[in-house]
Amino acid sequence: MAANPKTTLYVGGLEENVTEQVVHAAFIPFGDVKDISMPLDQATQKHRGFAFITYFEKEDAAAAMDNMHNGELYGRVLTVNFAQPQKIKGGEQGWASQAVWADADTWFERQQQEEEMKRLNAEHLATVSAAEEAERKKLKEVREGETEADDAVEDPMAAAEAEALKAS
């Protein structure tokens, strides 16, 4: 069912005795019908109560939907809407209306972007670590310089007291 979703209708609420010929006869007044699909129940081999009708023209599909929605067929009220694309397993969210491999290019691009981000983060961390190490060395040198300067120049109060003791 790879048809244009605007030309394919979902028809729900079909009575058990409805056949493809009956559906065709009910929907042909609105335009040329390209295809009718009535999925079967595997256990009972009867249709599951709905059908998909594909028209050649989207205007015909719109007219059929407008006229047949909430209409009656074999005593049952029909639900007629544009069909949604068939969901297939795969894709990035687990279910998609596209093939599993359809998002392969974006997946590869995303993987490359993630690797590039990891590389940039590693470079950033290395730069930060180098800057922190340089800062630590600088502080260490400044502190060592302060202790040497303290040893070279005595405390002025202590020097004054020592001179006062010598004078007395």
Rank of each mutant, 00 (worst) to 15 (best):
E148I: 14
E115D: 05
H24C: 08
V33L: 03
A102H: 04
E141D: 10
L73Y: 01
T54K: 03
A162L: 11
N81C: 05
A160F: 13
L14A: 03
R76N: 04
E20D: 08
E92Q: 15
E114C: 03
G145S: 15
E133T: 12
N81F: 09
Y74H: 10
K138I: 07
S129Y: 08
M68H: 02
N81E: 05
K46F: 09
K87F: 09
L120H: 13
S37V: 15
L40M: 08
R136N: 06
A130P: 03
N67R: 08
P39T: 01
D35M: 13
T44Y: 04
K6I: 08
L125C: 11
G13Q: 02
V100C: 09
P85H: 07
K138A: 10
E132Q: 12
E141F: 13
V153H: 15
D105E: 08
A126D: 04
A51M: 01
K140W: 12
I88A: 08
E146C: 11
T7S: 04
T19P: 02
K87Y: 09
V11T: 00
E146H: 14
V100N: 10
T79H: 06
N17G: 13
L78W: 00
N67S: 09
L40T: 05
M38C: 03
V100A: 11
D32E: 14
A43I: 14
V142Y: 11
A126E: 06
F50K: 01
E57R: 08
G49Q: 02
G13N: 01
N17I: 14
A63K: 07
L139H: 11
V77M: 05
D41W: 02
A126C: 05
T54L: 04
P85R: 08
E141K: 15
F108G: 05
E141W: 12
M68F: 02
G13H: 00
H69F: 01
E135S: 10
W101G: 11
N121K: 15
H124G: 10
Q93G: 08
K58S: 10
A61K: 00
Q45P: 00
K89F: 08
G145I: 10
V23F: 02
D105H: 07
K6R: 12
L125G: 10
T79P: 02
G49E: 00
D35N: 13
L165Q: 12
A3I: 09
Q98E: 07
K6N: 09
D66F: 08
L14Q: 01
M117Q: 14
F56T: 03
H124W: 14
E114I: 06
D66Y: 10
T127W: 14
P39H: 03
A102Y: 03
E109K: 06
Y74I: 06
V128H: 06
N17H: 15
E59Y: 06
D155I: 06
E59H: 04
E148W: 13
M68R: 03
H47A: 01
V100D: 12
M1G: 13
H24Q: 11
F50A: 00
